[in-house]
């Protein structure tokens, strides 16, 4: 077994410590920043009893307690999975988090469905034509892609599509969804449409998710292409690949079954890290494209002093990082017998 129990225990321990650190830090930053959450919780009262209402709200939210008790209480809430009721929306934070997460994940998943195969393919092509103009072009293009600010790319794609009359705004055509009786079940519209066999909505959602997914995919395409090229260049010089060539194995098999397979472990590792990084990109891009998701909810929650929702969103992002990294390590160990965890 490439993954030891010792590794898992250590990893879980570090993950818990990381999440706890994030909770404490984000809680302190949000609660101590200007703006009184109690005002929002009390409903912005304006009558003669406004001060009383706000004072009551402060007690209900536990904001009248010493800061260390507030932090401890919030930590307990976070680790029991109950972040309470959103201050701005008066709905359970978990419900809002899931809606946002589903929307963002859908975008991210499509972006990576595009990015990984494309990045790997052009990386392999470049490695096979090292030193040619194509290799130079691919290297330069992937460098540009990996370093282009995603929000800028998102705005550029959105503007180009808008001016050419292509609709890329929002997640689904409202009228189409209503006319076809589409219902959101999981919050993942592509999946929901498939489950309901609602192909018009499926295609519409796909068409609207594709442009922002392209913007999000730019960074991982660039990274994967560069990493694949470098790993492939090494792999092609390995003894087992040279032997396969000497044995007369076809060129395609040598490239894809032998050399490329040897790059998979490194590719998975880098993709995992990039995946977590791209979550933030997706949050920015969805805002540009008028899509609901973690990005917009985070922006609105900070603006409304909704520290419960904002902290919840930050926890989700942190959790995502931790999980993506851990999974990348485990998958790397599973695909590469040389790696032991």
């Amino acid at each position: 077994m490439p993954v030891s129990l010792n590794y898992l225990v250590r990893r879980v321990g570090w993950s818990i410590a990381t999440i706890a650190g994030v909770v404490i830090l984000s809680y302190l930053v949000l609660v101590l920043s200007p703006g009184d959450p109690a005002v929002k919780w009390a409903g912005n009262p304006r009558g003669p009893g406004a001060a009383k209402a706000i004072e009551n709200a402060r007690k209900e939210l536990g904001l009248d307690q010493p800061l260390y008790l507030q932090v401890l209480n919030f930590l307990r809430m976070a680790f029991t999975g109950d972040l309470g009721i959103s201050i701005a929306y008066k709905k359970p934070v978990s419900e809002i988090l899931w809606r946002g997460l589903a929307a963002t994940l859908e975008l991210l998943a499509l972006a990576y469905a595009i990015a990984i195969p494309l990045g790997a393919f052009i990386g392999v092509m470049a490695s096979l034509r090292r030193g040619t103009w194509l290799d130079g072009f691919i290297q330069s293009a992937s460098l540009v892609l990996a370093n282009t600010p995603t929000f800028w790319l998102g705005i550029a794609i959105f503007m180009v599509l808008s001016t050419s009359g292509v609709t890329a705004y929002g997640r689904v055509d409202t009228r189409l969804a209503l006319a076809t009786g589409f219902r959101s079940i999981t919050g993942l519209y592509l999946l929901d449409a498939l489950v309901q066999l609602n192909f018009p909505v499926f295609l519409d959602v796909l068409a609207r998710t594709f442009p922002p997914a392209l913007a999000v995919a730019a960074y991982p395409v660039g990274v994967c292409a560069r990493v694949t090229r470098a790993l492939m260049a090494d792999a092609l010089l390995e003894g087992f690949v040279q032997s396969a060539v000497a044995w007369g194995v076809s060129r395609r098999a040598v490239v894809w079954r032998y050399a490329f397979r040897a790059t998979l472990a490194g590719l998975v590792q880098v993709s995992g890290l990039a995946f977590a990084y791209s979550l933030v990109d997706a949050m920015v891009v969805e805002y540009v494209f008028g899509r609901d998701g973690l990005g917009r909810f985070l922006f609105d929650s900070v603006n409304t002093s909704d520290f419960r929702l904002a902290t919840g969103l930050i926890i989700v992002v942190a959790l995502f990082y931790v999980l993506a990294n851990t999974l990348a390590d485990i998958v790397q160990a599973l695909v590469d017998p040389r790696v032991k965890l």
Partner: peptide, 26 residues
């Protein structure tokens, strides 16, 4: 299915989408 289904499934609804600048507080 994409082109035909919506019109066959349900009569056209009169829909209005009103965008509002603030979150709904309750």
């Amino acid at each position: 299915i994409w082109y035909l289904q919506p019109t066959q499934r349900a009569p056209a609804l009169k829909v209005v989408v009103y965008s509002y600048l603030d979150v709904i507080t309750g």
